[in-house]
Amino acid sequence: MFLTYYKETRVSIPKAQLPELYRRLYLCRQFENVTIKLFTNNELPGFLHSQLGQEAIPVAISGCLGDGDFMQPTHRGHADMLSKGMDPRKMMAELYAKKTGYNQGKGGSMHMASVKEGILGATGIVGSGPVISIGVALALQMDKKPNVIVSFFGDGATNEGSVHEAINMAALWNLPIVFVIQNNQFAESTPRKDHQKVDDISIRAEGYGIDGYTCDGNDLFAVYEVASKAIKKARKGGGPSLINAVTYRILGHYVGDPGNLYRDKEEVENAKKRDPLQMFKNKLKEMKALDDAAFKRIESEVDALLDEAVTFGRESPEPQDEELMAYIYS
């Protein structure tokens, strides 16, 4: 299941970047753990899609992005947003639907955006993101910017016509975009074998005349390897690529869906054994990139930041009544 078709010399992640990548990965994981708890305690309105177990993909990819680059997350996208640098306090406030949230309580989990920081809101209409992302890529190209956009979507979205339209047009126009499938094996409750015949989605890239890669989405190094290549190519005017990052959705479709009606317990338990956080941590230990004290320091800093974020969200003011009608028109 976890195939790496792309086999070239490994691009090693610059060593100086490793502690920061671990910090982001741990932050993404803990943000999920904390928000799941808050949601289960009925503290957060609406619904919540957990990205638990998929965090290595956005963290590796964000590691290849810089200022001026863009990303469009999926509706299951807290790790996408955090990995690119969104502030967990303002994200938490948005989940609490507060005025101090990124979207002032108007967006919620799925639409949190920080356009200044290069993060578009996700769309709640699965498969609609990529056609918007190509517009950002076109603007970057027209302005001759050295920047790119990473457009995230899931394996379920790959069956939407809009995704086909987006990839075809991006390929045709040679746009600076990288399409990344967070292939978590499920379209809501439908396992991948029941929603598409093809086993390796990246082979579809050939039909668009672009490069396609499949990598182990739980191995941060493997994702980084293909992403850095694809992003570099897009940055240099080489056009789009399609990355199929294979992972597994540990939880149900939303927090509250036990996820037990459409898959075996054993399958989930096996997937848990390949936890991307633990895999990255083990590798760093093996490489002696970080010692125990360093891991501990990073983890306690992140834990403290999240405590602060929860307090900030909880205690922030609600939007005022008169804000109901604000921002519909310019």
Binding site: S128, I134, G135, V136, L138, A139, G161, S162, M169
Partner: peptide
């Protein structure tokens, strides 16, 4: 000129408008 892709035409317009086009 675009392919016959109405979703991509409108989505692309939207994405580029967000960046000031």
């Amino acid at each position: 000129n675009t392919p016959l892709s109405e979703m991509a035409v409108v989505g692309c317009a939207l994405g580029s408008a967000m960046l000031g086009k």
